[in-house]
Simulated assay, not measured.
Amino acid sequence: MNFDGNTNTPVVNEDISEHLFPTSRARILLIEDDPEIAEEVTNELVDRAYVVEHVATGPQGGEEARRGRYDLLIIDLLLPGCDGFSIIQDLRRDGIQMPVLVVSALGAVNDRVRGLKVGGDDYVTKPFALPELVARVEALLRRPLDTRATTLRVGPLELDLIERVAKREGRTIELSKSEFKLLEYFMRRPDRVVTRDMLLEDVWHYRFLPQTNLVDVHIGRLRRKIDGPNEEPLLLSVRGMGFYFREPN
């Protein structure tokens, strides 16, 4: 691990970050039987640094969704072997909570409602524009998996969302309101690179991103509080990319 010579900030070089932290790239499972659509979607997502696994049939897709560790599922509804409605419903019944983006030619209102009711998180009707699909993928990946949890734990760090208290191995950490929101955001996304633009938009709700050092100032304050002098750093900077909240092995 390297440190910035001026700030003593733990830094990960951009050119080696993928090897140190392979889970920072979101893994997506695509269940789509149309080979042309599958190829276009896969190429677009891979170009944007996502890891994509494609399956063409319903039964194989359901098995892969259970077997693999994916951050997002993109699924068609009209599939060989079994329909997408059944796959989503079965995954939710089995407790698999990864976000699901439904992509289907079934554009009627009742189909869209049904797709969401069985457990889909978003719905795109074919034909669609790839930039729209990517935007919906990004939005779903930013969404916390379990907003109902009252306590978050990542490595030695614990965040009580009810009492609004942070602790690290018994040490209570005093946080401002902004620092608490920032830490919650990171702890809901461990082992994933988070950009400054994401933080400005999702934590501070800036739609038009200003030129500001707001993020860096708050990151510095938060890092000094959660990473004590003799403690292993949890909040790292990824050079040229953003920040990374590391879950120790």
Rank of each mutant, 00 (worst) to 15 (best):
R188P: 00
V193D: 12
N213W: 03
D122M: 09
L175F: 10
T150Q: 13
I173A: 11
T151A: 03
M187P: 02
Y244G: 09
F180V: 14
P99K: 01
R189V: 00
A166F: 06
A108S: 14
M198I: 04
L161F: 07
G170K: 03
R153M: 05
I219T: 08
R112E: 04
E201V: 00
Q211D: 15
P156I: 12
E158P: 00
T150F: 00
L159M: 12
R239H: 06
R171Y: 10
E163R: 15
D227Q: 00
T125C: 10
K167M: 13
E174D: 14
A108C: 03
R136V: 04
K126S: 06
T151L: 02
V238H: 03
T125H: 04
R112I: 10
Y185R: 10
K181T: 13
V238G: 02
G242Q: 14
D191S: 11
K117Y: 04
E231H: 05
V215E: 02
G220S: 09
L214G: 02
I162T: 11
L152K: 08
D146T: 12
V100T: 07
R223F: 10
V103P: 03
M198E: 15
Y185P: 05
R239C: 01
D191L: 00
R171G: 00
P127I: 13
L209T: 12
P229M: 13
E138I: 05
L234I: 05
R153P: 00
G120C: 08
L234D: 01
V193T: 15
V113Q: 13
P190H: 07
R148M: 01
E169F: 03
V109L: 13
A139R: 15
K167Q: 10
A166G: 09
E174P: 00
T212K: 08
V238N: 02
G115E: 04
F208D: 14
R164C: 11
P229F: 09
E158S: 12
F245Q: 10
L140C: 11
L182R: 04
D197L: 00
M198D: 15
A129R: 14
V124H: 06
G240P: 04
P210L: 08
T172A: 14
F243V: 01
P127C: 13
L209M: 11
R136H: 03
N110M: 00
A129E: 15
L222A: 06
G240E: 07
I173M: 15
L209W: 10
A149H: 05
R221M: 12
K177N: 12
L145A: 08
